[in-house]
Amino acid sequence: MSRTIKMVVFDMAGTTVNENNIVYKTLQKAINEAGYNFTLDEVLAEGAGKEKLQAIKSILKTYAGNTDTELADRIYSNFSVQLTEAYQTAKLLPQPNAADLFSALKERNIFRVLNTGYSRPVAQSIIDILDWKEGTEYDQLVTATDVSGGRPEPDMILFAADKFGIKPAEIIKVGDSIIDIEEGKNAGSALSIGITTGAHTPGQLQSANPDHIIDNLMELLPIIDRY
């Protein structure tokens, strides 16, 4: 059993939550309603993992050279309304083996933190739909609206580390996007691990030089136990 890993910080959508890309499909719809024709792959490539207003700004700048902040704000407002509506009928499920992994980490006395580029109300609504309870499935939720710096800045990880008195070198970050991997590295995490169940392809994940790429959450346990 690992004696040096004391916390795992998990991304939500695509990593621990299977929501069939509802957020990015809604983001694509809101942006394209403003007169664009971006594909879902483009939205995922540039926006995955980011705080969602920042994702909109990045997508507009990268693919259209548009830096109009007022336009981005209007799209974000439209997106927020549409996302609330989408979640009312969405079918959300835990990613395969999420519950078993959370339980195994608890048995090892390893803190389980969920972090996300969503706002706190959106993230909490997902957790409520899944009926996850703080102290049972997870130990803390940290969202983009809880800190000043969004991914790839390390603020969310460092916020969680400070709460539990954990050093960054005792933390593993797991996520399904390039920006998750960069966030873990910027925090000084022991390991920054990509998972192939979400936004980015294995090739895209590899471009961020993760310490490992896994295909299933349970593959994390032997990595922890060897560390």
Rank of each mutant, 00 (worst) to 15 (best):
Pro94Cys: 15
Asp146Lys: 08
Ala104Pro: 14
Ala144His: 01
Phe102Met: 07
Asp162Gly: 07
Ala98Leu: 10
Phe111Ala: 15
Pro154Arg: 02
Pro152Thr: 09
Ala104Glu: 14
Lys91His: 14
Gln95Ala: 10
Pro94Glu: 12
Ala99Glu: 15
Gln88Gly: 15
Asp131Cys: 14
Asp146Gln: 05
Ser119Tyr: 05
Met156Tyr: 00
Glu85Phe: 06
Tyr87Cys: 09
Lys167Arg: 15
Tyr87Gln: 05
Glu137Ser: 03
Glu137Val: 05
Ala161Gly: 09
Lys106Phe: 15
Glu182Lys: 00
Asp128Ser: 11
Ala104Trp: 11
Gly117Lys: 00
Thr143Met: 13
Asp155Phe: 04
Ile172Phe: 15
Ile157Glu: 00
Met156Thr: 04
Ala98Val: 00
Leu101Val: 15
Ile179Gln: 00
Gly175Thr: 00
Ala169Lys: 03
Asp100Met: 09
Ala90Pro: 03
Leu141Asp: 01
Leu114His: 03
Glu170Trp: 10
Val142His: 06
Ala90Met: 06
Phe111Trp: 13
Ala123Asn: 02
Ala144Gln: 00
Val113Glu: 04
Gly150Leu: 08
Gln88Tyr: 05
Ala123Pro: 03
Ile157Asp: 01
Lys106Tyr: 11
Gly135Leu: 13
Thr116Gly: 03
Leu114Cys: 02
Pro154Glu: 03
Tyr138Met: 07
Lys106Ile: 03
Ser77Asn: 09
Ser177Gln: 08
Val122Thr: 12
Val81Thr: 14
Arg108Ser: 11
Thr89Lys: 10
Tyr87Glu: 05
Val147Ser: 08
Leu130Cys: 04
Gly150Ser: 12
Val147Gln: 11
Glu134Leu: 12
